[in-house]
Design a protein around this nucleic acid. Structure first.
Length: 440
RNA sequence: UCCUCAGUAGCUCAAUGGUAGAGCAUCCGGCUGUUAACCGGAGGGUUCCUGGUUCGAGUCCAGGCUGAGGAGCCA
C-alpha cells in the first residue's frame, strides 16, 4: 500500500520555491507533464504552474500500489505528489523529488499536444492547452513582467492611471479600421483604436496620465506584426514637448527591458534569447529625423520617395543601422494623424516620433506633440471631413486653457515579441485575435 | 483586397502518373537514471472538396474551401 499524502502532515510547496525545501518532505499539486519509465523506476516530470520538476519514483521506495498507479498515467493528468526534495546536478532545475506518495486527482486521456512537433494552426486551435507548454509559460511570464514594469515606471513618476473608454461614439479616423457595435437603440458605437483623445482631456485635468487597455483595429492586416485586439499603454503629459516625449519613451523602454533581464533570466533562457542584444538597450537612443531615415533607406538601395510612410522593409533597414531602439522624428505631416502638431520651423513635417525596435521588430511606439491651437485643430478636422459635432469636447480642450502637450502609445505585444525574440506576435498574448481567428 | 505557398494516419511529414509509408501519440510486452528516453509488437487512411485528362491520379488540369507567409495600414 502506497503512502498517500493525506496521511502526513502536509507541507504544500511550489516548484519555484523548491530550493528552500531541500531535504524536506513536501507535497506538490499539479499536472503530469511527461513520463518515462524503466520498468522499476518512473521518471515523472510534474508541473504546478510555477515550474517543472522531475519526480523519481522507484518501486521499492513508493510501493507496488503507488508505482502501478503511475504506470499508464497519461500526459496532463492532474496529480498530487508527496516526496523528499533532493539536490541533483543532473536535474535542469537543480532539484528532484524522491516520491513517497502519489495520488491521481483526475486522469487525462489522449492529450492532443504531444512532446513532438506541431503546426501553428493545430496549436492555435488548442491555444487553451498550448499555454501549458514551457515555452508558452515563459512568454506569458515575461508579458506579465513587461506589464508590471510599465505600471511601476509610470506610477513611480507621478503619473495617474486614468482609464479611457472601450466604446467610443464616432469614427475618429474612418470607419473601415473600427469594429462597429450596436449601442442600444441609439447609434452605432465603435471599439476604441486608441485612448489618446480622452487621454488628452485627462492630462489637462491630472497633468501626467496614462491609460492601459485593449485596443481594436479592424484592418485586414495579415502579418506577424498585427493583431485585431492588442494591448496598448498610452501616457500623455501636459506641457510636454517632442523632446520630452522621446525622453519618456526612451526611459520606459530601457526600464522595461532591464526589468525583464533582471527578473526573468530563466524564462529568457527557456526561449533561448540572445540577451546580449537586450543588454545593449541603454539610453541614449539615437534620434534621427525622417529625412535622415529616408537617406539610410535610399543608401541601402530600397526605392523610396520623400513624403511616404515607411513600410516594414524600410523600418528594418533603418533599425539595422543601430544596436538599440531608434527614435525617428518629424515625419511628413500629410501621412500623420490630424491631431499631430506641425513643426513651427518647418510646417510640412509633424512633431511626431516612432520608436523602432532592433532586429527587425519594427515600430513599438508611436506618438508626439498634439495640435494645441484651436483654429488649426478645427481646420484639420474640416480637412479630414470629420464630423465637428463629435469633436466639440475635444475642441473644448483648446478653448479652455490649452497648453502644449504630447504622449505616445506602446504596443505591449510588439514589445513582448521583441524581448522574447518571437517570430510572430500571436504568441505574445494568451488568446490572440487575428483576421480569421477568434477561437478559442 | 492583392501576391506567394501549403492541405496525405490523432500529430509532424514522405511517396518518378503504377500495391498508401515512417517517426511520434494510443494499446500490449521489456528495461532501476531517463530527461523530445530506448527496444519489440499491434491497431489506425473519404490523400481538403467538386469536376476533368488518363488503361491507371495523393501526384497532372480547372474551379472552390481552409490555413500560412508577405504587401498595404498600423502599435
Amino acid at each position: 500500500m502506497g503512502v498517500g499524502p493525506r496521511e502526513h502532515e502536509e507541507m504544500i510547496a511550489y516548484i519555484e520555491d523548491i530550493a528552500r525545501h531541500e531535504g524536506q518532505t513536501v507535497t506538490l499539486r499539479g499536472w503530469l507533464h511527461n513520463r518515462r519509465s524503466s520498468g522499476k523506476i518512473h521518471f515523472l516530470t510534474v508541473r504546478d504552474g510555477s515550474g517543472f520538476i522531475q519526480c523519481v519514483m522507484s518501486k521499492k521506495a513508493a510501493g507496488d500500489d503507488t508505482f502501478t498507479r503511475a504506470d499508464h498515467l497519461a500526459q496532463e493528468s492532474s496529480v498530487i505528489v508527496h516526496g523528499t526534495v533532493r539536490a541533483d546536478s543532473r536535474a535542469p532545475g537543480g532539484y528532484e523529488l524522491d516520491v513517497t506518495g502519489f495520488d491521481v486527482v483526475s486522469p487525462a486521456t489522449d492529450y492532443p499536444i504531444t512532446p513532438k512537433e506541431h503546426g501553428v494552426d493545430y496549436l492555435m486551435d488548442r491555444r487553451h492547452l498550448w499555454i501549458r507548454a514551457p515555452r508558452q509559460q515563459a512568454i506569458l511570464r515575461i508579458r506579465h513582467e513587461v506589464i508590471d514594469a510599465v505600471r511601476d515606471f509610470f506610477n513611480s513618476r507621478g503619473f495617474v492611471l486614468a482609464d479611457t473608454p472601450i466604446f467610443t461614439p464616432s469614427a475618429c479616423e474612418g470607419t473601415t479600421t473600427l469594429f462597429p457595435v450596436q449601442y442600444f437603440e441609439q447609434e452605432t458605437a465603435y471599439l476604441t483604436q486608441s485612448g489618446q483623445l480622452y487621454n488628452e482631456a485627462n492630462a489637462m485635468a491630472l497633468g501626467r496620465v496614462y491609460c492601459f487597455g485593449p485596443t481594436f483595429r479592424a484592418e485586414k492586416s495579415k502579418t506577424r506584426r498585427h493583431l485585431t485586439e492588442f494591448w496598448m499603454v498610452e501616457p500623455e503629459v501636459a506641457y510636454a514637448t517632442l523632446d520630452d516625449v522621446m525622453a519618456l519613451a526612451e526611459g520606459l523602454v530601457v526600464s522595461v527591458v532591464q526589468r525583464v533581464l533582471e527578473r526573468r533570466a530563466a524564462e529568457l533562457k527557456v526561449l533561448e534569447r540572445d540577451t546580449s542584444r537586450l543588454e545593449r538597450v541603454q539610453a541614449p537612443f539615437p534620434r534621427i529625423s525622417y529625412d535622415e531615415a529616408a537617406e539610410i533607406i535610399r543608401r541601402k538601395g530600397l526605392p523610396f520617395e520623400w513624403g511616404g510612410d515607411f513600410g516594414a522593409p524600410d523600418e528594418t533597414a533603418v533599425s539595422e543601422e543601430f544596436d538599440r531602439p531608434v527614435c525617428v522624428h518629424r515625419y511628413p505631416a500629410a501621412v500623420k494623424a490630424f491631431y499631430m502638431k506641425p513643426d513651427p520651423e518647418r510646417p510640412e513635417v509633424a512633431l511626431g516620433v516612432d520608436v523602432l525596435a532592433p532586429e527587425g521588430y519594427g515600430e513599438i511606439i508611436g506618438g508626439g506633440e498634439r495640435v494645441d491651437d484651436y483654429d488649426l485643430l478645427l481646420a484639420r478636422i474640416k480637412e479630414h471631413n470629420l464630423p465637428q459635432a463629435a469633436f466639440e469636447w475635444y475642441l473644448d480642450l483648446r478653448r479652455f486653457g490649452s497648453v502644449p502637450h504630447g504622449g505616445f502609445g506602446m504596443g505591449i505585444e510588439r514589445v513582448v515579441s521583441w524581448i522574447c525574440g518571437l517570430d510572430h506576435l500571436r504568441e505574445a498574448i494568451p488568446y490572440p485575435r487575428m483576421l480569421y481567428r477568434i477561437y478559442p
